[in-house]
Design a protein around this nucleic acid. Sequence first.
DNA 1: TAACTCACTTGCTTTTTGCAAGTAAGCAAA
DNA 2: TTTGCTTACTTGCAAAAAGCAAGTGAGTTA
Lengths: 130, 130
Amino acid sequence: MRSDCPISFALDYFGDKWTLLIIRDLIFDRKKFYSDFLNSKEGIATNILSNRLKKLESNGIIESKVYEKLKTKKEYSLTPKGKTLVPVLVEMILWSAQYNGDLAIPQEFLHKAKTGKDQLVAAITARLDT
Amino acid sequence: MRSDCPISFALDYFGDKWTLLIIRDLIFDRKKFYSDFLNSKEGIATNILSNRLKKLESNGIIESKVYEKLKTKKEYSLTPKGKTLVPVLVEMILWSAQYNGDLAIPQEFLHKAKTGKDQLVAAITARLDT
DNA sequence: TAACTCACTTGCTTTTTGCAAGTAAGCAAA
DNA sequence: TTTGCTTACTTGCAAAAAGCAAGTGAGTTA
């Protein structure tokens, strides 16, 4: 930790170009496996992905368990601490939406964010437990 | 831009360990000058600071003008695009507050965030124009 | 039991960061 | 007008991180 500043604290967790993309995959795309993250369109390298998954796990943002149906696979999921990142991601999406109209954001998402942001966050969070 | 994902879009602006700290200084500490940012407790290096200020300016997040009282100084300020980052920073602060009780966050901030987040964001944003 | 899948690791190159020192422009006092 | 000071950078070099290609080993399937 570089200081007692909450922004600095948060950046120590996800202040890089890749970590939040993995969390995005977990939250919005319901991805679970190493190969899922690897196939995301930004093209993360295998060693970076491995490093970030380890870091996220040791930081208590995600957890993993052996996938019983196929034991070579590990199934990743968000911890409660990870799930509380939903509001941060939502605000980032809304910020981006203001400055680039060509991004992949469903109209429904923007509408819901405008009419009831808290409910939108709650709905996204609740879906993670299903 | 790495993809049409809004999270990826946002990370292209501030997906690193330093950029958001400069924006934090501008928003919460009302800092204006190179030397102000340099003296922040995280200890940014001069070349990184210079690089990030340039990047923020070319990305339209901040702007700068010569400080008339002392022409060797440049006065930096947030553009409207930069000011709309307030909600993102607020959510990051609230996330951090949940997981570390020793951070420098005023009680009043947390109270206001709980009772009326939108008003808090509006108040912080409005203050930037004074 | 041999080939295959999957999650990683390794080795190497390139890029970014970090640190210390230097520079140039504006300013202030002698 | 010259000297020294402040301020915002730039430069050079070492260390760390990222990117890429190839390899490894455990578990699965034919």
